[in-house]
Amino acid sequence: MFSKEKVKIAFDALRDEKIDMWIIAGQESATNTEPILAVMSDAEFIGCTALIFCKDGTSTAVCTPIDYNGYVHHGVFDEVIAFPISFTDTLAEVIVKKKPEVIALDYSLENPSADGLSLGMYHLLEEAFEKANYQGKVVSAENIIVRVRGIKSEEELSKIRKACLEAEKIFDDAKDFIKPGMNCKDVYAFFQNEVERKGFGWSWPKSCNPGVFSGYGCPGGHMGAPDFAISRGDVVNIDFGIVVDGYGCDLQRMYYVLKEDESEAPKDIVEAFNTVRDGILLAAKALKPGVTGLEVDTVAREYITGKGYEDWNAALGHQMGRVAHDGGPLLGPEKPRYNKDELIRTPLFENMAFTLEPAIPTRAGRIGLEEDVVVKKDGAEFIVPPQKELYLI
C-alpha cells in the first residue's frame, strides 16, 4: 500500500518548490530499482508505469491493464489509466490535460536516492513530451525526494529505534566477549554470528560489517576487520549496523582494554573520549529544523579542534533510514568533496534522521563514536541513549 503521509509530504514539497508535476516512472523495479518507490509504498513497477503527483493535490497512475486494479486498490490515486496500446501516448494525453509548466523527474548528480530514472525510461518520457508538444521545463525531483525520503514517519522512526535497540544488545554482549590477545577478526566474527543467529539484516554489506579497529596503527575505514591484535591498553572501536523490519541503524561504540595494573582508562584517553562525546552533544543541540548541515558540522568540528585535537577527514554525519547511508543532505564541512550547496547548505527538516560521528586518533587507537538522532524543534533527540563512558574490558 502507499503511505498517505509520504504522499502528503510530496504535495507539500511540490507547492513549496513551485513544481507543477512530479513523474515517478519505471518498469520491472525489482530488477532495475527506483529508490523512492520503496519509501512511498510496497508496490513494484511491472510494465511501464508512471506515478504522477501534481501541485494542485491530484494524482494519476498510468499503467498496464494487468496492473490497473492494483493501483485502484491502493486508494491514493484520483485517476488510474490503463494504457491500451502505447505508454507514451497515454502519458502524453495526461500531460496535455494537466498543462504543467514545470515537470520534475527522478535524476540527480549528487543524491543517489533521487537518481532512480533509468536512461531507457528517460527516453520514453522524452517521447511522451514530444507527443504532448510539451514546451515547459524539466527539472530534477531531488528537492521533493529529499523531503519524502528524509522526513521520517513515526512508524519509520519506531523501526529505526528497534534496530538501534537490537544492535545495542549485541554491543553490550561484546563487553563480555572481547579479551586482550584476540584479533579484530575474532570480534568481527562474534558480531556476524549474533546477527545471523538473530535473523537480522545488514545496514551495509555483510563483508565489511562491523568495522572493528583496535590500537595504534590499526587500518581503518569501510573494510570490516583487519588482521590486527587487540592488546591491553588499546581502545576498540566498533562500527556496526543492522536492519530490522526494513529499517536500519548505524552506531559506533568504544571499549578500552585495561592493562593489568589499571582499574580505569588513562586520563588522556578518557579526555579524548569525552571530547568526542561532548562534541556530539553540542551538535545534537544545534540540529534543529531550518539549520544547514554545514552549521551543525561546524559546531562539533570547532569544539573538537578547539580542544587541540586534529581535524577529521569526513563529514560529521549522514542521513539514515532504510539503509545506513540514506541519501540527501549531509552534516558536512567545506572540504572539497562535500562543498556543494545541495549537500551542506540545504535547510533541514524536522524528523530527518542523522548520524553524528566525529573521531580523533589517540596513542591507543582511533576514538570514534556514532549516535543516531532525529531532528526536533528544540534540538535533535537521540534515538537510543548515547554512550557516555568508555566500556572497560
Rank of each mutant, 00 (worst) to 15 (best):
F83C: 04
T292V: 06
I52R: 03
I46Q: 12
T362W: 06
N339P: 01
D297A: 07
V195P: 00
E126V: 14
L157I: 14
N237P: 02
G321A: 07
V148D: 01
I85R: 14
F382N: 07
S263L: 12
L348N: 03
I269R: 01
L51H: 04
I95S: 10
A225Y: 07
S108E: 08
E262Y: 09
M254C: 11
L343N: 07
G220Q: 11
E342W: 08
N237W: 08
L356W: 02
K185Q: 14
Y68R: 15
V291L: 07
G248K: 01
N237A: 14
A50M: 05
E194A: 11
V299P: 05
R322Q: 11
T346Y: 10
P180G: 09
E264Q: 13
S41D: 08
G328P: 06
I383H: 02
I269H: 00
D42I: 06
A286P: 01
F2D: 04
N274I: 04
Y255V: 04
S113I: 12
A132E: 06
N351V: 01
D12I: 08
H73W: 12
C164A: 12
V244Y: 00
I9N: 02
N133G: 10
I66R: 12
I360C: 05
K175Y: 10
Y309C: 03
T58Q: 13
K259S: 11
D245T: 03
D250Y: 12
N237M: 15
V244I: 10
S203F: 04
R161S: 12
F11Q: 09
A283W: 02
G224R: 07
V291T: 12
E126A: 14
I23Q: 08
P266A: 09
N237D: 14
L117S: 06
L157S: 04
L91V: 03
T64K: 12
N313Y: 13
P386G: 01
Y134A: 05
L330S: 05
D311M: 11
A114H: 03
G221F: 07
A189F: 09
L316Q: 03
M121H: 08
P35W: 03
E310I: 10
I81K: 09
L117R: 04
Y247E: 01
D372F: 01
R149A: 10
G224P: 04
P112A: 11
R149I: 13
A141I: 02
T33C: 01
A272Q: 07
V146Q: 15
C48F: 10
I360Y: 02
A38F: 09
F382A: 04
E260C: 07
I144R: 05
L119T: 13
F349S: 14
G332D: 05
S113F: 13
N339L: 06
T305M: 09
E295Q: 15
R345C: 05
N339Y: 11
N274R: 13
N69S: 15
E154N: 13
D378L: 06
G150D: 00
G57F: 09
W204V: 00
H73E: 15
Y107G: 03
F87A: 03
D67Y: 08
Y122D: 13
S29W: 09
G332M: 08
E260D: 15
C249L: 00
D173R: 13
D172M: 13
E196L: 15
E350D: 08
M352D: 06
R149L: 10
